[in-house]
Amino acid sequence: MIEAENIVYSIGGERILANIYATFQPGKITAILGPNGAGKSTLLKCLTGALTPDNGSVFLDGKNLWDYSLDALSRMRAVLSQSAPVNFPFTAHEIVTMGRNPYSFDKTDAWNSEIADDALALVDAWHLRDRSFPTLSGGEQQRVQFARVIAQIWERDEAYLFLDEPTSALDLKHQHHLLDLVQRLCREKRLTVVIVMHDLNLAYHCTDNCYFIKEGWIRGGGASRELINKDVISEIFDLAPEYAAMRFGGELSE
Rank of each mutant, 00 (worst) to 15 (best):
E5M: 05
N6P: 00
S10D: 03
I11A: 11
G12T: 01
G13R: 12
R15M: 12
I16Q: 00
A22D: 06
Q25S: 13
P26M: 07
P26E: 12
I29W: 05
I29Q: 03
I29L: 03
G34D: 06
G34A: 08
L44N: 05
K45W: 00
L47D: 02
L51T: 00
L51I: 02
P53V: 11
D54E: 09
V58F: 10
G62L: 09
G62E: 04
K63D: 03
L65V: 10
L73C: 02
S74F: 04
R75K: 15
A78P: 02
F88N: 01
F88P: 00
P89C: 05
T91N: 05
I95E: 09
M98C: 11
R100V: 10
N101Y: 15
Y103P: 02
S104L: 07
K107H: 12
N112T: 09
E114W: 02
E114D: 14
A116G: 02
A116K: 05
A116S: 15
A119N: 03
L120I: 07
A121V: 01
A125P: 04
A125F: 05
L128W: 09
D130V: 04
D130A: 07
D130Y: 13
S132F: 08
S132T: 01
F133T: 11
T135L: 14
T135F: 12
L136H: 05
L136Y: 08
S137Y: 01
G138R: 07
G139N: 08
E140S: 03
R143E: 00
F146W: 09
F146A: 11
A147Y: 01
A151E: 05
Q152K: 07
E155Q: 08
R156V: 14
R156L: 06
E158D: 12
A159I: 06
F162R: 01
L163I: 07
D164Y: 11
P166S: 08
L170D: 02
L170S: 10
L170C: 10
L170N: 07
D171K: 01
L172T: 12
Q175K: 15
H177S: 15
L179N: 08
L179C: 10
D180I: 04
L181C: 04
L181T: 13
Q183M: 10
V196R: 14
D199P: 02
D199S: 10
N201E: 12
A203Q: 03
H205S: 14
T207K: 06
N209H: 15
C210Y: 03
C210L: 13
Y211R: 10
R219G: 00
R219H: 14
G220M: 11
G221K: 10
A223F: 13
S224F: 08
E226K: 14
K230I: 01
D231V: 13
I233S: 05
S234Q: 11
S234M: 08
F237V: 04
D238M: 12
L239Q: 06
A240K: 14
Y243A: 12
M246Q: 14
M246A: 15
G250A: 07
S253Q: 09
